[in-house]
């Protein structure tokens, strides 16, 4: 593991630095606030729905899936929320180091470009985990309310959220490598994420073969399966290859400094 010492050291530094910046605090605050609101709304929605169903004498009340309703909807909405947060989290990563010149000094240390990109990316993934893991406490809250938890959905949804986040953050890291203006980096990655978001609607409007092709590239079409408890290998491959693609581009962008002489 000697080759990854540099990446690990960089990961630690970036991770803790993130929470010393206003962006880090803002992202954490916004995520936890909005996640809390979503969760509360879905729990209330479920309880009124199930009450209504019971009053109407609907036989299927017992089969209604609490986890599917609350957690599934919760995760889907976190996916949308992360569309806004991923650019904020990743925009600083390389752009800020380029602007302030600290990257130049980093180049003089015994770390390879690959380690730099992996360290930066690792820090982003760690930040993603730090955002998401506290929301698992909501499961405990559901349990306290007396609900049955379907851990299959919890598992697939968590996996899906991390895969989605990993792809978004890799894209954000790439844009951060392209420019030294972090606002521009954030704007670019947000724009591209929007394009991918809209793909799903376009897919519905487009004639059949086109629509299928478009929806194959829509992160949300893939993500929805996870939130419903389905782990589709195709979706896993989609997110992982998207992440690998943008990491490769980011690495190439970092390496281009060697060509300029």
């Amino acid at each position: 593991m000697k080759g990854f010492t540099g990446a690990w050291v960089l990961l630690k530094k970036d991770f803790f630095s993130f929470y010393r910046s206003w962006v880090g605090v803002l992202v954490l605050f916004a995520f936890l606030l909005v996640a809390g609101i979503f969760f509360t709304l879905f729990v209330l929605g479920y309880s009124s729905l199930s009450m209504e169903a019971a009053r109407q004498g609907y036989e299927g009340v017992g089969r209604m899936n609490l986890t599917g309703f609350v957690i599934g909807a919760f995760l889907l909405n976190l996916g949308v929320l992360f569309l806004f947060l991923a650019p904020l989290m990743s925009m600083r990563s390389l752009a800020e180091e380029k602007r302030t010149g600290t990257l130049e000094l980093l180049y003089t240390y015994p770390v390879s470009d690959f380690e730099i990109v992996m360290g930066k990316y690792g820090a982003l993934l760690a930040q993603l985990a730090a955002l998401f893991l506290p929301t698992l406490a909501y499961l405990g809250a559901l349990r306290l309310l007396g609900g049955q938890i379907d851990f299959g959905i919890v598992f697939s949804g968590t996996l899906g959220f991390f895969l989605l986040g990993a792809a978004y953050l890799a894209m954000g890291l790439f844009f951060s490598a392209v420019t030294e203006n972090q606002m521009l980096a954030g704007g670019l990655s947000f724009s591209l994420l929007m394009v991918f978001w809209v793909l799903e609607w376009l897919a519905g409007l487009a004639p059949r073969p086109w629509g299928n092709g478009l929806s194959a590239f829509s992160p949300f079409v893939h993500y929805r399966d996870f939130a419903l408890g389905i782990v589709d290998l195709q979706a896993v491959v989609f997110f992982l290859s998207a992440a690998a693609f943008f990491l490769f581009l980011a690495l190439r962008t970092v390496e281009t400094r060697n060509w300029k002489g």
Binding site: K13, S17, R20, S21, T100, G101, T102, E104, L105, T108
Partner: peptide
Amino acid sequence: PEQVSLYPDL
């Protein structure tokens, strides 16, 4: 380096 840039938040 001539213009030494170090992480200001550490």
